[in-house]
């Protein structure tokens, strides 16, 4: 038993060296086949070493809601098109905490496929935000039930949306009697990028954050509304239903989402 383990370890070490030599020589075909051998050897080692002790079944609590509903929940809180990292952070801070970035990688594509197959069959779709060129913005998710102006972006929108989301996170904190640590940390992280929202290392005060964000928002608001209205109007004129939700490029993938 231990002999075969030794032999396996020797073989694993040899294979690793061979793989690395192949990689160094950029021999991809060889490297791939060697990696296959290596994985098999490692599995054999795993089996050999673990023989006798029962493999403990992976304990992972099943999330209560499907992924798309958890995303929807976070988006509803944020109220603006948001990046995957922000959605995961909000889920962590206020909800189940079971959402993982990689689960969202193909979400937008799945939603688009579903919509194109059977339009408006679902009460909402997790869709794209559209750039001023009417293409889907990289890495952002939006809610199809939002009014079109909210789902398009002008040059000022990323900042405006950040300020709005910070206000909404703060607002949620105001209404909680005992907000969780994670939620306060999230607010702090956001608040330190808003002038006047937080001082030094002190925890962020939600009311102050709202005031500070609103003050900066005043500066951008009018111009952003006008630019968004223009883009939304163009989208309304030029795009099909599906494109209005998922963007004007046929192949829309959620890039840079991890």
């Amino acid at each position: 038993m231990s002999e075969s383990l030794d032999a396996l370890e020797l073989r694993i070490a040899e294979l690793r060296a061979q793989v690395r030599r192949a990689v160094k020589a950029r021999d991809n075909t060889l490297a791939r086949s060697l990696r296959g051998d290596l994985r098999r050897a490692e599995q054999a080692w795993d089996r050999a070493v673990g023989a006798g002790e029962p493999e403990s079944p992976q304990e992972r609590e099943a999330p209560l809601l499907p992924v798309r509903e958890q995303v929807h929940q976070a988006l509803a809180l944020l109220g603006v098109p948001s990046a995957v990292r922000m959605i995961v952070a909000v889920n962590d801070a206020f909800f189940s905490g079971a959402l993982r970035g990689p689960q969202l990688t193909s979400l937008r594509r799945d939603e688009e496929r579903s919509f194109r197959g059977d339009p408006y069959a679902r009460p909402y779709y997790l869709c794209a935000a559209l750039t001023d060129r009417l293409s889907p913005a990289r890495g952002l998710l939006a809610d199809s039930t939002w009014e079109p102006e909210r789902r398009v972006l002008g040059p000022l929108s990323p900042r405006v949306d950040f300020l709005v989301s910070a206000m909404r996170v703060a607002d949620r904190l105001v209404r909680m009697t005992d907000p969780p640590q994670g939620a306060r940390r999230l607010l702090r992280r956001m608040a330190q990028n808003i002038p006047g929202a937080v001082e030094g290392l002190a925890p962020a005060d939600p009311e102050t954050t709202i005031r500070a964000a609103r003050a900066e928002l005043e500066v951008h608001h009018a111009a952003d509304v006008a630019q968004r209205a223009e883009v939304a109007a163009r989208a309304g004129r030029q795009l099909s239903d599906a494109e209005r939700l998922f963007g004007a490029v046929a192949l829309s993938t959620l890039r840079g989402a991890s």
Binding site: V19, R20, V23, E42, V49, G50, Q58
Partner: peptide, 25 residues
């Protein structure tokens, strides 16, 4: 080369199942 070929898969395995056995690997 070690990072990419040996360490990364081992760390990944640990993340999947943080058992004593994956630490040993």
């Amino acid at each position: 080369g070690f990072d990419n070929e040996v360490l990364a898969p081992a760390v990944h395995a640990y993340e999947e199942a943080p058992t004593e056995h994956s630490v040993e690997r």
